[in-house]
Write a protein that binds this DNA or RNA. Sequence first.
RNA 1: GGAGAGGUGCCUGAGUGGAUUAAAGGGAUGGUUUCGAAAACCAUUGUAGAGUAAUCUACCGUGAGUUCGAAUCUCACCCUCUCCGCCA
Length: 421
Amino acid sequence: MLDIKLIRDYPGLIKEASRKKKINFDVEYFLEVDRKRRELIKSIEELNAIKNQANKRIQLAEKDEDRKTIISQMKELDINSDNQNQVFKKLDEEYKRLMLLVPNIPDETVPEGDSDLDNVEVRKWGKVPNFNFTVKDHIQIAKDLDLIDFEKGSEIAGFRGYFLKKEAVLICLAIWQYAMDVLRKKDFVPMIAPSLIKESALTGTGYLPQQEDEVYSLGDGMYLAGTSEVPLMSYHAGDVLKEEDLPLKYMGFSPCFRTEIGSYGKDTQGILRVHEFMKIEQVVLCENSKEESIRLHEEITKNAEEILQGLEIPYHVVLNCTGDLGLGQVKKYDIEAWVPSQNRYRETHSSSYFFDFQTRRLNIKYKTKQGETKLAYSLNNTGIATPRVLIPLLENNQQKDGSVKIPKALHKYLGFKEIKR
RNA sequence: GGAGAGGUGCCUGAGUGGAUUAAAGGGAUGGUUUCGAAAACCAUUGUAGAGUAAUCUACCGUGAGUUCGAAUCUCACCCUCUCCGCCA
């Protein structure tokens, strides 16, 4: 949600943002609704002022007759007032519905583009491995080493279902522990967040109503979160924080659920795109400042890179183009890890900032030292997501003999250095 | 799942249809006093919207309703607590 004053004063910016983000939003229509709504508010407030005055006169009236006269006058006035209120209710609903659909304005450094194909590489890390044998994809490796059971997975959990087995499980546990240790050193507060959540948490973070298809709805008003960003941001909904406590940094650990509607036919094999996975998410609330947002955005991006570097996984960072930005995102980097079997990088992390888009919806503020109350700004990035990260981990470390070497950083959590049969 | 109690401002807490402009106390901030502090005294102390401004409007968990008028009455929902049952 954006500041209504900004939309009123600079509708052109919103129009541009809609165009760049490939989002359909009719600014002129919205402003018309806003104008009518405001006119009505003014008129209703004037009526209320008359009523309030009349109430005082009713109380003070000495004669019963006077009182009756005023009451009958007020009854007449009420007919008009009821009508206005009904019209207002409809207008207000429409206004609120539209307010949730106004796209945030992309940063000027974000390249224009239609889709992820137009994202721009920012930097690369690590050496893409050269294999002197035919590389296997993660599916084959997992089958050969009995690490993932896809057949039973789809039998029990349906399409995109999977069972992790044996070392795959232990490695996931180790990866979580490792990633948490990295983030803990950077003072991120560990949280295990609920995935079963109410609608308001999803609306507050901007996933609803915009991305309704992608969220599992349980039909009783409860939903399954696609990321712990949703419960963690909602954790502070309605709060007035202290400036000296900012930035607040959380690492949220939770199962994540995604319908993947709209990606039918994409990545249907393996564990790249699954309905259910585990993720450690970095969530940050900071002061109302663009500079601070940018600084922290770079920081949480670096944190994720540090985690991947520790796992010895080659990656690159791309700057997402406007068409690949979500409704509320101002700027986003995706980190993509090298997947040898596909001979390309695939997304493992997504790092973005929102300014007050989410905090306005969630009403998260803070008091400055001068006593001013301001909306906080928010950011988030993946810490690590499993099992997806197993793909580059298994593939990049596969050996000619079919075994897989395990990156050093995980050894102390595992007690073994390779997967071998 | 069953039974009960409750939700009022930064906090405690009063308030069963009209003077509530939400009492009172506490806290916080500023001032007086003081060498300085404590105490005492005085003052200030919510959010949002409309307006150049004076000012006006809304908000007592949320939403709807009754009424000329609702923190107060009615209905639905949300949340918290207590007890019973079940349970990792």
